[in-house]
Design a protein around this nucleic acid. Structure first.
Length: 314
DNA sequence: AAGACGAAAGTGGTTGA
DNA sequence: TCAACAACTTTCGTCTT
């Protein structure tokens, strides 16, 4: 983590690899505030911040005493949660009640404090986008790690001037989709756009754009990551789920999956597995859950049946 | 009647000239 | 920039259970 100060602005930049030898094994010495590369010994950073707790606490009382003041730093708030708020209680630092004649002044100070927090248009844009990201993530039910990653992607997009000319909703949805892919949390583009105000075409286009510009180098999602969730949604047993994964692995080996949509292949595997284990779901039912058509399931499942020597008793 | 099957035509994205 | 292409969708008629 490097602090880059320019005037009143502080930028935080995550270091993940050694600039000298590109090794990812970096040793953090929190006592000295140094980060060294275990490969070549280079001191990568000599001024980084320990974001962990300040002391270990062994009981509730110690925890109370030793915890840091304020919330932890987060990329999910436009100023990373590092700004200062003027509290709403009408009391001064000594706990004395602020006299009525000074309350209007306090109110004005509070108002301007809030206004100056998001001073530039870029800040305001970021604040709006992060709000939108959070809304989307809550609607879809994504956990904190994915949200933070999405927020990080959005910030990088803003820094590289990729947002100008595009809608905040579209870029936010695209960042979230990218974060899902990076974190291997399977969400289809359809699911994300259903929660977003932007349409699928725009989100898809924006996603490809920022993926290319930010050099995310994301591989197509593996169909396996979808199996668990879709089986759960279809209320299929663990036995069927395992069978679907086995079928899918065979399909991967037989090279039946490359170039095919991952959801289609996953859907076909689930369908075959459900038939084999006598918990048949209709093609229509699976198609609706997975978000492909019955025809796609049929085409994929025909290929599986032809190439994998699966005997389906109907 | 519901589900499965398959043909045909159309759509949107990728690739290579 | 454009045509060719593969994957996928939509629609619809037919067959099977």
């Amino acid at each position: 983590m490097v602090l880059k100060g320019s005037g009143s602005k502080i930028e935080l930049e995550e270091i993940t690899a050694c600039p000298e030898c590109d090794s990812k094994h970096l040793i953090r010495d929190y006592n000295r505030g140094e980060m060294t590369c275990s490969g070549c010994g280079l001191v990568v950073d000599d001024n980084f911040i320990d974001q962990g707790p300040e002391w270990r606490a062994f009981d509730a009382e110690q925890n109370e005493k030793r915890s840091r003041g304020g919330a932890p730093m987060t990329v999910m708030v436009h100023d990373k949660g590092l700004s200062t708020d003027i509290g709403w209680g009408n009391r001064d630092t000594h706990g004395n009640v602020v006299p009525t004649r000074n309350r209007a002044q306090l109110f004005r100070m509070r108002k301007w404090q809030n206004r100056t927090r998001a001073s530039t248009s870029a800040d305001r844009n970021l604040a709006m986008a992060l709000k939108e990201l959070n809304r989307l993530a809550s609607k879809i039910g994504l956990h904190r790690r994915v949200r933070e990653d999405a927020a990080m992607l959005y910030r990088r997009a803003v820094n590289q001037n990729l947002v100008r000319g595009r809608s905040v909703e579209g870029v936010a949805a695209a960042a979230l989709y990218g974060a899902c892919r990076r974190c291997e949390v399977p969400r289809t583009l359809n699911e994300i756009t259903a929660a977003s105000r932007a349409n699928k075409k725009e989100v898809g286009r924006t996603y490809r754009y920022i993926s290319r510009e930010l050099k995310l180098n994301l591989q197509p999602a593996s169909p396996v990551v979808y199996i668990n969730r879709f089986c759960r949604e279809l209320e299929l047993s663990g036995r069927v789920e395992n069978a679907a994964i086995r079928i899918l692995n065979q399909a991967v080996e037989a090279e039946l999956t490359s170039g095919r949509g991952p959801t289609g292949v996953a859907a076909a595997s689930i369908y075959v597995a459900s038939v084999l284990y006598n918990s048949r779901k209709t093609q229509k039912c699976i198609a609706e859950t997975v978000g492909v058509t019955e025809v796609t399931i049929r085409n994929r499942y025909k290929e599986l049946a032809e190439n994998l020597d699966i005997t389906v008793q109907i």
